[in-house]
Design a protein around this nucleic acid. Sequence first.
DNA 1: GTCTATATAAGGATAGAC
DNA 2: GTCTATCCTTATATAGAC
Lengths: 192, 192
Amino acid sequence: MTSTRDRLVDSTRELLWDRGYVGTSPKAIQELSGAGQGSMYHHFAGKRELALAAIERTAEELRDNAERELSAPGTAVARITAYLRRERDALRGCPIGRLTQDPDILADPALRRPVDETFDWLRERLAAVLTEGRTRGEFDGDLDANDIASAIVATAQGGYVLARAAGDPAQFHRAVDGVIALLKARTKTVAQ
Amino acid sequence: MTSTRDRLVDSTRELLWDRGYVGTSPKAIQELSGAGQGSMYHHFAGKRELALAAIERTAEELRDNAERELSAPGTAVARITAYLRRERDALRGCPIGRLTQDPDILADPALRRPVDETFDWLRERLAAVLTEGRTRGEFDGDLDANDIASAIVATAQGGYVLARAAGDPAQFHRAVDGVIALLKARTKTVAQ
DNA sequence: GTCTATATAAGGATAGAC
DNA sequence: GTCTATCCTTATATAGAC
Protein backbone atom coordinates (compact mmCIF):
# COMPACT_ATOMS: atom_id res chain seq x y z
CA MET A 1 0.00 0.00 0.00
CA THR A 2 2.66 2.50 1.00
CA SER A 3 5.43 3.14 -1.47
CA THR A 4 9.04 2.28 -0.77
CA ARG A 5 9.77 5.95 -0.79
CA ASP A 6 7.18 6.60 1.89
CA ARG A 7 8.46 3.78 4.02
CA LEU A 8 11.95 5.21 3.78
CA VAL A 9 10.76 8.62 4.89
CA ASP A 10 8.66 7.22 7.72
CA SER A 11 11.52 5.10 8.99
CA THR A 12 13.82 8.09 8.89
CA ARG A 13 11.30 10.10 10.88
CA GLU A 14 11.19 7.46 13.60
CA LEU A 15 14.94 7.15 13.78
CA LEU A 16 15.53 10.91 13.82
CA TRP A 17 13.05 11.20 16.64
CA ASP A 18 14.71 8.56 18.76
CA ARG A 19 18.36 8.86 17.84
CA GLY A 20 18.87 12.22 16.12
CA TYR A 21 20.67 12.91 12.90
CA VAL A 22 24.16 11.86 13.87
CA GLY A 23 22.76 8.74 15.52
CA THR A 24 20.82 7.64 12.46
CA SER A 25 22.66 5.53 9.89
CA PRO A 26 21.61 4.70 6.34
CA LYS A 27 21.87 1.05 7.29
CA ALA A 28 19.39 1.49 10.17
CA ILE A 29 16.98 3.26 7.83
CA GLN A 30 17.21 0.41 5.34
CA GLU A 31 16.58 -2.19 8.00
CA LEU A 32 13.60 -0.40 9.54
CA SER A 33 12.02 0.35 6.19
CA GLY A 34 12.76 -3.01 4.67
CA ALA A 35 14.31 -1.32 1.66
CA GLY A 36 17.63 -2.43 0.24
CA GLN A 37 20.68 -0.25 -0.16
CA GLY A 38 20.29 0.21 -3.91
CA SER A 39 16.67 1.07 -3.37
CA MET A 40 17.39 3.72 -0.82
CA TYR A 41 20.03 5.41 -2.93
CA HIS A 42 17.75 5.23 -5.91
CA HIS A 43 15.05 7.26 -4.17
CA PHE A 44 17.30 9.63 -2.26
CA ALA A 45 20.74 11.05 -2.84
CA GLY A 46 21.77 10.13 0.69
CA LYS A 47 21.11 10.55 4.37
CA ARG A 48 20.79 14.30 4.14
CA GLU A 49 18.07 14.25 1.48
CA LEU A 50 16.17 11.63 3.44
CA ALA A 51 16.42 13.67 6.61
CA LEU A 52 15.20 16.74 4.80
CA ALA A 53 12.06 14.97 3.58
CA ALA A 54 11.52 13.43 7.02
CA ILE A 55 11.90 16.68 8.92
CA GLU A 56 9.61 18.60 6.60
CA ARG A 57 6.94 15.98 6.97
CA THR A 58 7.24 15.88 10.76
CA ALA A 59 7.07 19.66 11.00
CA GLU A 60 3.94 19.73 8.88
CA GLU A 61 2.28 17.13 11.07
CA LEU A 62 3.19 18.87 14.29
CA ARG A 63 1.74 22.08 13.01
CA ASP A 64 -1.48 20.44 11.90
CA ASN A 65 -1.93 18.78 15.26
CA ALA A 66 -1.33 21.99 17.17
CA GLU A 67 -3.68 23.93 14.96
CA ARG A 68 -6.44 21.45 15.70
CA GLU A 69 -6.35 22.20 19.44
CA LEU A 70 -5.66 25.89 19.11
CA SER A 71 -8.44 26.65 16.65
CA ALA A 72 -11.11 24.76 18.60
CA PRO A 73 -13.91 26.69 20.25
CA GLY A 74 -13.48 27.82 23.86
CA THR A 75 -11.55 30.37 25.88
CA ALA A 76 -7.90 31.05 25.24
CA VAL A 77 -6.88 29.30 28.43
CA ALA A 78 -9.08 26.29 27.65
CA ARG A 79 -7.53 25.88 24.22
CA ILE A 80 -3.99 26.28 25.48
CA THR A 81 -4.73 23.84 28.28
CA ALA A 82 -6.11 21.33 25.80
CA TYR A 83 -3.00 21.74 23.69
CA LEU A 84 -0.64 21.21 26.60
CA ARG A 85 -2.58 18.32 28.08
CA ARG A 86 -3.12 16.51 24.82
CA GLU A 87 -2.21 12.86 25.09
CA ARG A 88 1.39 12.25 24.18
CA ASP A 89 4.38 10.04 24.87
CA ALA A 90 6.29 12.49 27.01
CA LEU A 91 9.29 10.18 27.33
CA ARG A 92 9.82 10.25 23.63
CA GLY A 93 10.04 14.00 23.57
CA CYS A 94 9.33 16.39 20.71
CA PRO A 95 10.42 15.17 17.26
CA ILE A 96 11.21 18.73 16.22
CA GLY A 97 12.66 20.10 19.45
CA ARG A 98 15.00 17.14 19.56
CA LEU A 99 16.68 18.26 16.39
CA THR A 100 17.93 21.45 18.00
CA GLN A 101 20.50 19.32 19.82
CA ASP A 102 22.05 18.17 16.59
CA PRO A 103 24.89 20.46 15.48
CA ASP A 104 24.80 19.00 11.97
CA ILE A 105 21.17 20.03 11.64
CA LEU A 106 21.68 23.53 12.97
CA ALA A 107 24.65 23.98 10.65
CA ASP A 108 22.66 23.09 7.56
CA PRO A 109 20.21 25.86 6.56
CA ALA A 110 17.89 23.51 4.67
CA LEU A 111 17.64 21.02 7.51
CA ARG A 112 17.31 23.73 10.07
CA ARG A 113 14.62 25.80 8.42
CA PRO A 114 11.62 23.56 9.22
CA VAL A 115 12.73 23.46 12.85
CA ASP A 116 13.05 27.20 13.09
CA GLU A 117 9.78 27.83 11.26
CA THR A 118 7.84 25.37 13.39
CA PHE A 119 8.70 27.10 16.64
CA ASP A 120 8.23 30.50 15.11
CA TRP A 121 4.77 29.56 13.94
CA LEU A 122 3.82 27.92 17.23
CA ARG A 123 4.92 30.87 19.32
CA GLU A 124 3.01 33.30 17.14
CA ARG A 125 -0.05 31.10 17.10
CA LEU A 126 -0.11 30.91 20.90
CA ALA A 127 0.44 34.64 21.15
CA ALA A 128 -2.53 35.18 18.85
CA VAL A 129 -4.71 32.97 21.02
CA LEU A 130 -3.66 34.90 24.12
CA THR A 131 -4.28 38.23 22.44
CA GLU A 132 -7.67 37.06 21.35
CA GLY A 133 -8.43 36.07 24.95
CA ARG A 134 -7.38 39.45 26.19
CA THR A 135 -9.55 41.20 23.63
CA ARG A 136 -12.46 39.13 24.85
CA GLY A 137 -11.71 40.22 28.38
CA GLU A 138 -10.62 36.85 29.72
CA PHE A 139 -7.62 38.21 31.56
CA ASP A 140 -7.14 40.65 34.36
CA GLY A 141 -4.96 43.64 33.58
CA ASP A 142 -2.36 43.57 30.91
CA LEU A 143 -0.39 40.58 29.69
CA ASP A 144 2.57 40.29 27.40
CA ALA A 145 1.27 37.74 24.90
CA ASN A 146 4.60 37.19 23.15
CA ASP A 147 6.61 36.50 26.26
CA ILE A 148 3.95 34.27 27.74
CA ALA A 149 3.55 32.37 24.48
CA SER A 150 7.31 31.75 24.51
CA ALA A 151 7.15 30.58 28.10
CA ILE A 152 4.36 28.15 27.24
CA VAL A 153 6.21 26.60 24.31
CA ALA A 154 9.38 26.46 26.39
CA THR A 155 7.60 24.77 29.27
CA ALA A 156 6.46 21.98 26.98
CA GLN A 157 9.91 21.56 25.44
CA GLY A 158 11.56 21.65 28.84
CA GLY A 159 8.92 19.33 30.23
CA TYR A 160 10.15 16.68 27.86
CA VAL A 161 13.69 17.20 29.10
CA LEU A 162 12.59 16.72 32.70
CA ALA A 163 10.52 13.67 31.86
CA ARG A 164 13.36 12.03 29.97
CA ALA A 165 15.90 12.83 32.68
CA ALA A 166 13.69 11.22 35.31
CA GLY A 167 12.37 8.47 33.06
CA ASP A 168 8.94 9.58 34.22
CA PRO A 169 6.23 11.19 32.06
CA ALA A 170 4.74 12.75 35.19
CA GLN A 171 7.54 15.31 35.15
CA PHE A 172 6.24 16.66 31.88
CA HIS A 173 2.76 16.98 33.24
CA ARG A 174 3.96 18.63 36.41
CA ALA A 175 5.69 21.39 34.48
CA VAL A 176 2.66 21.85 32.28
CA ASP A 177 0.37 22.00 35.31
CA GLY A 178 2.62 24.66 36.79
CA VAL A 179 2.43 26.99 33.84
CA ILE A 180 -1.30 26.41 33.45
CA ALA A 181 -1.81 27.30 37.12
CA LEU A 182 0.15 30.51 36.65
CA LEU A 183 -1.81 31.39 33.55
CA LYS A 184 -5.18 30.64 35.16
CA ALA A 185 -4.34 32.96 38.01
CA ARG A 186 -4.41 35.76 35.46
CA THR A 187 -7.97 35.09 34.35
CA LYS A 188 -10.80 37.19 35.70
CA THR A 189 -12.51 35.45 38.57
CA VAL A 190 -15.96 35.52 37.04
CA ALA A 191 -16.79 31.83 36.63
CA GLN A 192 -15.27 28.85 38.42
CA MET B 1 49.58 23.18 35.40
CA THR B 2 46.58 21.00 34.65
CA SER B 3 47.14 17.29 34.47
CA THR B 4 46.62 15.29 31.31
CA ARG B 5 43.76 13.57 33.06
CA ASP B 6 42.09 16.90 33.77
CA ARG B 7 42.56 18.07 30.23
CA LEU B 8 40.95 14.89 28.98
CA VAL B 9 37.94 15.38 31.23
CA ASP B 10 37.61 19.05 30.34
CA SER B 11 37.79 18.32 26.63
CA THR B 12 35.17 15.62 27.00
CA ARG B 13 32.91 18.05 28.84
CA GLU B 14 33.16 20.56 26.01
CA LEU B 15 32.52 17.96 23.34
CA LEU B 16 29.60 16.39 25.16
CA TRP B 17 28.06 19.83 25.55
CA ASP B 18 28.35 20.65 21.87
CA ARG B 19 27.98 17.28 20.18
CA GLY B 20 26.48 14.86 22.69
CA TYR B 21 27.68 11.39 23.53
CA VAL B 22 27.13 9.71 20.18
CA GLY B 23 28.67 12.70 18.42
CA THR B 24 31.83 12.66 20.50
CA SER B 25 34.66 10.42 19.32
CA PRO B 26 37.76 9.37 21.24
CA LYS B 27 39.80 10.87 18.45
CA ALA B 28 38.14 14.26 18.90
CA ILE B 29 38.80 14.13 22.64
CA GLN B 30 42.45 13.38 22.00
CA GLU B 31 42.81 16.22 19.56
CA LEU B 32 41.11 18.79 21.76
CA SER B 33 42.99 17.75 24.87
CA GLY B 34 46.31 17.36 23.15
CA ALA B 35 46.67 13.88 24.63
CA GLY B 36 47.74 10.92 22.56
CA GLN B 37 45.78 7.75 22.10
CA GLY B 38 47.88 5.69 24.46
CA SER B 39 47.65 8.43 27.02
CA MET B 40 43.90 8.58 26.87
CA TYR B 41 43.48 4.84 27.26
CA HIS B 42 45.97 4.84 30.07
CA HIS B 43 43.89 7.26 32.13
CA PHE B 44 40.46 5.97 31.17
CA ALA B 45 39.11 2.62 30.11
CA GLY B 46 37.33 4.24 27.16
CA LYS B 47 34.80 6.76 26.02
CA ARG B 48 32.22 5.71 28.58
CA GLU B 49 34.49 6.18 31.58
CA LEU B 50 35.57 9.56 30.27
CA ALA B 51 31.98 10.60 29.78
CA LEU B 52 31.10 9.49 33.28
CA ALA B 53 33.82 11.65 34.82
CA ALA B 54 32.87 14.57 32.56
CA ILE B 55 29.16 14.40 33.31
CA GLU B 56 29.67 14.12 37.06
CA ARG B 57 31.91 17.16 37.02
CA THR B 58 29.51 19.20 34.91
CA ALA B 59 26.58 18.27 37.14
CA GLU B 60 28.51 19.33 40.22
CA GLU B 61 29.36 22.67 38.67
CA LEU B 62 25.81 23.36 37.52
CA ARG B 63 24.54 22.69 40.99
CA ASP B 64 27.11 24.92 42.63
CA ASN B 65 26.27 27.77 40.27
CA ALA B 66 22.56 27.44 40.84
CA GLU B 67 22.99 27.28 44.59
CA ARG B 68 24.91 30.53 44.52
CA GLU B 69 21.94 32.44 43.08
CA LEU B 70 19.27 30.60 44.98
CA SER B 71 20.83 30.95 48.40
CA ALA B 72 21.52 34.68 48.04
CA PRO B 73 19.55 37.15 50.18
CA GLY B 74 16.33 38.60 48.80
CA THR B 75 12.77 37.56 48.08
CA ALA B 76 11.95 34.25 46.46
CA VAL B 77 11.01 35.94 43.21
CA ALA B 78 14.16 38.05 43.22
CA ARG B 79 16.37 35.01 43.67
CA ILE B 80 14.59 33.00 41.02
CA THR B 81 14.75 35.95 38.66
CA ALA B 82 18.47 36.31 39.29
CA TYR B 83 18.91 32.62 38.57
CA LEU B 84 16.96 32.75 35.33
CA ARG B 85 18.57 35.97 34.14
CA ARG B 86 22.09 35.00 35.00
CA GLU B 87 24.44 35.64 32.12
CA ARG B 88 24.78 32.61 29.89
CA ASP B 89 25.41 31.49 26.35
CA ALA B 90 21.84 30.56 25.52
CA LEU B 91 22.75 29.24 22.09
CA ARG B 92 24.97 26.64 23.61
CA GLY B 93 22.17 25.27 25.73
CA CYS B 94 22.36 23.36 28.98
CA PRO B 95 25.24 20.90 29.28
CA ILE B 96 23.12 18.58 31.39
CA GLY B 97 19.74 18.98 29.69
CA ARG B 98 21.41 18.23 26.39
CA LEU B 99 22.27 14.76 27.53
CA THR B 100 18.63 13.78 27.83
CA GLN B 101 18.54 13.63 24.03
CA ASP B 102 21.15 10.91 23.95
CA PRO B 103 19.61 7.43 24.03
CA ASP B 104 22.95 5.88 24.95
CA ILE B 105 23.11 8.06 28.04
CA LEU B 106 19.55 7.38 29.13
CA ALA B 107 20.11 3.65 28.62
CA ASP B 108 23.15 3.59 30.90
CA PRO B 109 22.22 3.97 34.59
CA ALA B 110 25.62 5.30 35.62
CA LEU B 111 25.72 7.95 32.90
CA ARG B 112 22.13 8.86 33.47
CA ARG B 113 22.18 9.23 37.22
CA PRO B 114 23.92 12.63 37.42
CA VAL B 115 21.46 13.98 34.87
CA ASP B 116 18.45 12.72 36.75
CA GLU B 117 19.80 13.88 40.11
CA THR B 118 20.65 17.35 38.87
CA PHE B 119 17.12 18.10 37.73
CA ASP B 120 15.67 16.46 40.79
CA TRP B 121 17.79 18.63 43.01
CA LEU B 122 17.08 21.80 41.03
CA ARG B 123 13.34 21.30 41.05
CA GLU B 124 13.30 20.67 44.79
CA ARG B 125 15.57 23.60 45.47
CA LEU B 126 13.30 25.96 43.54
CA ALA B 127 10.26 24.52 45.26
CA ALA B 128 11.91 25.20 48.61
CA VAL B 129 12.61 28.80 47.64
CA LEU B 130 8.98 29.25 46.57
CA THR B 131 7.68 27.66 49.77
CA GLU B 132 9.93 29.91 51.79
CA GLY B 133 8.50 32.90 49.92
CA ARG B 134 4.99 31.79 50.62
CA THR B 135 5.74 31.36 54.31
CA ARG B 136 7.07 34.89 54.35
CA GLY B 137 3.85 36.08 52.77
CA GLU B 138 5.29 37.11 49.43
CA PHE B 139 2.52 35.55 47.41
CA ASP B 140 -1.19 36.08 47.15
CA GLY B 141 -3.36 33.07 47.88
CA ASP B 142 -2.09 29.56 47.51
CA LEU B 143 0.54 28.33 45.12
CA ASP B 144 1.65 24.86 44.17
CA ALA B 145 5.38 25.16 44.74
CA ASN B 146 6.26 21.82 43.13
CA ASP B 147 4.39 22.39 39.90
CA ILE B 148 5.64 25.93 39.56
CA ALA B 149 9.20 24.90 40.29
CA SER B 150 8.91 22.32 37.51
CA ALA B 151 7.53 24.93 35.16
CA ILE B 152 10.43 27.24 35.93
CA VAL B 153 13.09 24.63 35.27
CA ALA B 154 11.25 23.53 32.13
CA THR B 155 11.01 27.09 30.85
CA ALA B 156 14.75 27.46 31.05
CA GLN B 157 15.39 24.12 29.37
CA GLY B 158 12.83 24.86 26.68
CA GLY B 159 14.16 28.38 26.31
CA TYR B 160 17.42 26.88 25.13
CA VAL B 161 15.55 24.81 22.57
CA LEU B 162 13.82 27.91 21.21
CA ALA B 163 17.03 29.91 21.14
CA ARG B 164 18.89 27.19 19.30
CA ALA B 165 16.08 26.66 16.80
CA ALA B 166 16.03 30.35 15.97
CA GLY B 167 19.75 30.86 16.28
CA ASP B 168 18.88 33.75 18.57
CA PRO B 169 19.59 33.99 22.31
CA ALA B 170 16.72 36.47 22.66
CA GLN B 171 14.29 33.55 22.40
CA PHE B 172 15.64 32.18 25.65
CA HIS B 173 15.21 35.48 27.38
CA ARG B 174 11.74 35.94 26.02
CA ALA B 175 10.56 32.65 27.52
CA VAL B 176 12.22 33.46 30.80
CA ASP B 177 10.62 36.90 30.86
CA GLY B 178 7.26 35.27 30.27
CA VAL B 179 7.45 32.95 33.23
CA ILE B 180 8.87 35.67 35.45
CA ALA B 181 5.96 37.94 34.51
CA LEU B 182 3.48 35.19 35.37
CA LEU B 183 5.19 34.56 38.67
CA LYS B 184 5.39 38.23 39.60
CA ALA B 185 1.67 38.57 39.04
CA ARG B 186 1.23 36.23 41.98
CA THR B 187 3.14 38.42 44.41
CA LYS B 188 1.26 40.62 46.80
CA THR B 189 1.08 44.12 45.43
CA VAL B 190 2.74 45.74 48.41
CA ALA B 191 6.00 47.03 47.00
CA GLN B 192 7.14 46.92 43.41
C1' DG C 1 13.61 0.08 -9.21
C1' DT C 2 16.26 -3.30 -6.69
C1' DC C 3 20.32 -6.22 -5.77
C1' DT C 4 25.17 -7.34 -4.76
C1' DA C 5 29.96 -6.04 -4.79
C1' DT C 6 33.32 -2.95 -3.63
C1' DA C 7 35.53 1.25 -1.47
C1' DT C 8 37.16 4.96 1.72
C1' DA C 9 36.93 6.87 6.03
C1' DA C 10 35.89 7.06 10.87
C1' DG C 11 34.72 4.91 15.37
C1' DG C 12 36.52 2.63 19.18
C1' DA C 13 39.71 0.00 20.94
C1' DT C 14 44.02 -3.41 22.00
C1' DA C 15 49.17 -4.56 22.03
C1' DG C 16 53.51 -3.77 23.00
C1' DA C 17 57.65 -0.82 22.65
C1' DC C 18 59.85 3.07 24.93
C1' DG D 1 52.74 7.64 31.24
C1' DT D 2 53.08 8.14 26.34
C1' DC D 3 53.79 6.60 21.54
C1' DT D 4 53.06 3.92 17.36
C1' DA D 5 51.21 -0.04 15.08
C1' DT D 6 47.48 -2.80 14.26
C1' DC D 7 42.63 -4.50 14.39
C1' DC D 8 37.69 -5.12 13.70
C1' DT D 9 33.34 -2.76 12.97
C1' DT D 10 30.30 0.68 11.28
C1' DA D 11 29.22 4.83 8.42
C1' DT D 12 28.31 6.32 4.07
C1' DA D 13 28.50 5.86 -0.11
C1' DT D 14 29.53 4.40 -5.55
C1' DA D 15 29.35 0.95 -9.51
C1' DG D 16 27.29 -1.96 -12.28
C1' DA D 17 24.39 -6.12 -13.04
C1' DC D 18 19.59 -7.62 -13.27
